[in-house]
Computed example of a mutant assay.
Amino acid sequence: MATAGPSPRVPMTRLAVALLCLALSPALVSAQDSLWEKYMAAGAESYGKGQLAEAEKMWLAARKEAESSFGPDDIRLAATLTNLAELYRRQGKYPQAGWLLRRALGITKKAKGSHHPQVASIVNNLGTLYATTGRMDAAERMFRRALILRERTLGPDSLEVASSLDNLALLYHDEDHFQDAVQLHRRALAIRERALGPSHPGVTVSLTHLASLYTDLGRYAEAEPLYRRILTIRQSALGQDHPDVAAALDALAELYRKQGKFALAEPLYKQSLAIKEKALGAENPGLVPTLNEAAL
C-alpha cells in the first residue's frame, strides 16, 4: 500500500462499510455451507458488539472453512476476506486490510463479473480504507466507482446508493467542498426517507451527517431542526433511555454550547448523563466528558 496521506479532519469513523454474509437458498445449503454461515454470523454478531478478537476468531474459522470446502476462487471466500479486512482496518492493520480487499475483489470479479453489487461493496470498503489512511484522491475514485455500480445494479433509490452518497459527501466535507457535500447528503436523505419512511431510525444516518456539516459551517439555524428531528425519531423508535437518544441530546446540547446558549445546553447534557448513568453505572469513566459539559 502507498504511503498514507495527512489524517482526515472529518472523522472517518462516520463512513459506511459493508459487511458481507451471502444469502444461500435453503434447498442448496450443504453441511459445509451451514458451518461457514455459522462462523460468518457469529463473527458479525461479535463485531457488532465491539468484540473484535472474537469476531476475528470466527471469521478466520470461516476463511479456513471456505478455503477447504469451496476453493480459493469461491465467492464465499471473498465475502469472508472482505469482513476480515474491515476488522483489520478498524484495528489499524492497514496493509493486511488492503491485501485482503484486493484479493476479495479479484475473486468476486472472476466469479460474478465487474458489474455486481458485491464488487461495489468491496470497492466501497477500499474507499473507506484509503480515506482512513488519508489517501483522499484514491478514496474519491473508489467511492465514485461504488456509487456508479450501485446505481446500475441496485437502482438509484437503493439504500446502498444512499450510503455511497453519504460516504462521498463526507469526503467532500473533509476537503472543504461544502456545497457538493450538502447536495449529496440531501440526496441520500431523500432516498432514505422514501425507502424507510420519514420517522425510521435509519433516516437519522443522513440527518446526522447533514446536521454536522451545517454545524461545522456555522449554519446553526439549519442544523438545529435536524438535531431536534433526530432526537424525536430516536425517542419514539428506541425509547427515552436508549444510548442513541443520549448521543442525540449531546449533539443538540453541543450545538447550543457553540452558540453560547448555555441555559439551553445544560439540561440536555444532564438528561444525557442520566441515561448514560442508568446504562453504564454512575462510576463509569466514560461519563467524564458529559459530567464536564453538564457542569456548565
Rank of each mutant, 00 (worst) to 15 (best):
E266T: 15
R192Y: 03
G239I: 06
I233C: 08
S164L: 01
S212V: 00
V182N: 03
R150V: 01
V203F: 07
F262V: 15
L159T: 12
E193W: 06
A248S: 15
A248M: 07
S158L: 07
P225L: 00
D216Q: 11
A251N: 14
L264Y: 10
A246L: 03
Y214C: 08
G218L: 04
I191D: 11
L154M: 12
R150H: 12
Y227H: 12
A246D: 08
E151A: 00
Q183H: 14
R150G: 11
P243Y: 06
K270V: 04
G202P: 05
R187N: 12
G239Q: 06
Y172K: 10
Q179E: 15
L231C: 00
S164F: 05
A221H: 07
A253T: 02
R186Q: 13
K261R: 15
L264D: 14
S206H: 10
G239M: 08
M142T: 05
E160L: 02
A131T: 01
A190V: 00
A162Q: 06
R257V: 04
D166L: 03
R186S: 07
G239S: 09
L207D: 05
T215M: 07
R144D: 13
E254Q: 12
D216A: 13
I191P: 00
Q179M: 11
R141N: 14
D157N: 14
G218T: 04
E175A: 15
A188M: 09
E193F: 00
Q183S: 15
F143D: 09
G239E: 10
G202Q: 00
R257H: 14
Y256H: 15
V205M: 03
A263H: 09
D174M: 10
P201R: 10
D244G: 07
T133L: 05
L189A: 08
D174L: 03
S158T: 02
L147T: 03
Y227F: 14
R150M: 13
D250V: 08
E175G: 10
V203W: 00
Y172G: 06
A247D: 12
V161T: 05
